[in-house]
Amino acid sequence: MENIVSNIQGIPLNHYIIFCSLIFAIGVTGVLIRRNVIIIMMSIELMLNAVNLLLAAFSAYRGDASGQVFVFFIMALAAAEVAVGLAIIIMVYRNTKSVDIESLSKLRW
């Protein structure tokens, strides 16, 4: 473990933070500007994965395993979420024949 930690620490922490923030930002942007529900969902996954990566990096830097355990939780629950989300999208698709977020306009905010 020491080895891998020292290797990861070879890269400045800031790089991880900036990199993950960028991925996260890309995910957020994707959610906000894309109209295809599937792509929105993928963007959300991207956000979660940015989080995972950053957690792993922090965890390695601090030599504290709890960050990586947290990654497990995130992955597991993200999977559950995706499963439910896909089911919902299928359900919507069956009713509307579309996965475009614009077609969801019966309820107006």
């Binding site: 929105i40 439910v84 989300g85 919902i88 359900m91 919507v92 309820l107």
Partner: peptide, 8 residues
């Protein structure tokens, strides 16, 4: 629609 919105 509510389910999808809530989920997203």
């Amino acid at each position: 629609e509510a389910a999808l919105k809530y989920f997203l």
